[in-house]
Amino acid sequence: MLAGLSTNLGLYLGLSAVFFAFGVLTVLTRKNAVGLFMGVELMLNGAALNFVAFQTFRPGTHDSWLHGHVFSLFIIILAAIEAAVALAIVLRVFAARRTIDPDRATELRG
């Protein structure tokens, strides 16, 4: 079942933690709203990877329901929906002020 895949859960968790950490770093440092949302996607993918890894390596908890796998599928769907709405908003921002740098959206302050 796991032919060709590592059987070490820790490796997967480490990879997902790296995804999540890079995602957070991207969100905090990017000067471009589209890049920023790519960081959010990275964070979500870290979570999805966690779910798949935990479900695969912890059999016997919920085999028949496959909650972890199903959750990761929903994460993918919701990430797509969120990206669609976010990009629509970014387009409006660009039309309004010819820049999509969130740091320069400064009309609301105080």
């Binding site: 995602g23 964070m43 979570a47 912890r58 919920h62 972890g68 959750f71």
Partner: peptide, 18 residues
């Protein structure tokens, strides 16, 4: 929400329950 779902994934890993 990304932070929350990452937390849920860890909780799932520890407990095997959702």
């Amino acid at each position: 929400s990304a932070i929350m779902v990452y937390g849920i994934s860890l909780l799932f890993g520890v407990t095997g329950e959702l």
